[in-house]
């Protein structure tokens, strides 16, 4: 289930029968970010800002509590996008993932400042290790694990795949799913339970 590789250029949700309003156009986001990186394109940056800033504002508000701090997260995150655009590699992941990690790091450092009164910026050290986009250098086991995971989803019956993709990728609630698929809630619940059971076996239970 390597989202990065399947959402560019085609959104995986297109492959299902679920149609969602305002789907993310990953190809467009990628073009904008590339234009910022190569031409310092302010118009492209404006597009990115308009797309991400209201979302970041709302996500950050939940974590940092005040509108003022959430705005700081927006400004800091988008500032990083402007200054680090050249470091983005479209072959290694989606723009949304990249911006998400920046937002997460900015929020982490800000909360640490608030809670521990520390001005250190540890986030880049904490997450550069785990995510250093070294996915190309994965060893054999990694590929196995990844393929297993993908095949687990692909092996699910079509109706379970549909439910798990909407639930996982789009965080639709079970009620929303029932409405969208025009099925009883009980059916959604049981499909989800079956599918999640198989996924959990891959994702969670091997970890003690």
């Amino acid at each position: 289930m390597h989202i990065a590789s399947i959402c560019l250029p085609n959104d995986p949700i297109n492959a299902t029968s679920i149609r969602m309003p305002n789907k993310i156009n990953h190809t467009e986001l990628c073009e904008w970010l590339t234009a910022v990186a190569t031409h310092r394109d302010k118009q492209a940056f404006t597009h990115l800002f308009q797309f991400f800033s209201p979302k970041i504002q709302r996500i950050a508000k939940i974590k940092v509590n005040t509108d003022a701090r959430a705005s700081e997260v927006v400004q800091e995150t988008m500032g990083n996008v402007w200054r680090k655009a050249h470091l983005f590699d479209g072959n290694k992941g989606a723009v949304t993932t990249w911006v998400y990690t920046i937002m997460r790091n900015v929020t982490f450092d800000m909360l640490r400042k608030v809670k521990s009164n520390r001005e250190d910026t540890l986030s880049d050290d904490i997450w550069s290790l785990a995510e250093s986009q070294n996915i190309q250098e994965d060893d054999f086991t990694d590929h196995l694990a990844n393929n297993n995971l993908r095949s687990v989803i692909d092996d699910l019956p079509e109706n379970q795949q549909q439910v798990i993709k909407a639930y996982y990728f789009m965080e639709m609630s079970q009620d929303q799913l029932a409405v969208h698929l025009n099925l009883p809630l009980g059916t959604i619940k049981s499909r989800l339970r079956l599918a999640l059971g198989k996924l959990k076996a891959q994702l969670g239970e091997s970890h003690d």
Binding site: Y100, T101, M172
Partner: peptide, 9 residues
């Protein structure tokens, strides 16, 4: 990240 930036979420 996918879930965070989806309009639905």
């Amino acid at each position: 990240s996918y879930a965070s930036f989806e309009e639905v979420t």
